[in-house]
């Protein structure tokens, strides 16, 4: 699993790629946090899930963890492009109430 990032127009984009499970999430957690710490001037952050081919409940914990971190800097966060399976999990767990889908 890896993260591709981009910073354009004061927006931090993080594109997750790969299978998001307990094992793989540990690999990208620190990378995501460093990206946030390096872009504290961002107006908002967008997490792009188009490259996520699988996600279990680990993804919920991962996204809420990043939400909390971004919230400490006052940066709102949005998610985009979840697959059908990922969307089902994020919907049922209420993640979209914290980080709206765009």
């Amino acid at each position: 699993m890896r993260i591709l990032s981009d910073y354009r127009g004061n927006v931090l984009y993080m594109r997750l790629c790969g299978e998001m499970d307990e094992h793989n999430a540990a690999l990208v957690r620190r990378v995501a946090d460093k990206l946030v710490d390096d872009h504290t001037q961002s107006e908002r952050a967008v997490i792009d899930l188009s490259g996520v081919s699988f996600m279990d409940s680990t993804g919920i914990g991962f996204l809420i963890g990043r939400y909390k971190k971004l919230q400490r800097y006052g940066i709102p966060v949005y998610v985009t492009n979840p697959s059908l399976g990922t969307d089902k999990i994020l919907q049922m767990s209420g993640v979209y109430t914290l980080m709206p889908k765009i």
């Binding site: 957690r29 409940s57 680990t58 919920i60 914990g61 991962f62 809420i64 963890g65 049922m92 767990s93």
Partner: peptide
Amino acid sequence: DDERSGMGFTIMQT
């Protein structure tokens, strides 16, 4: 504390 969502069994049941 470990970023666990507590949704594992709920997902299995659903």
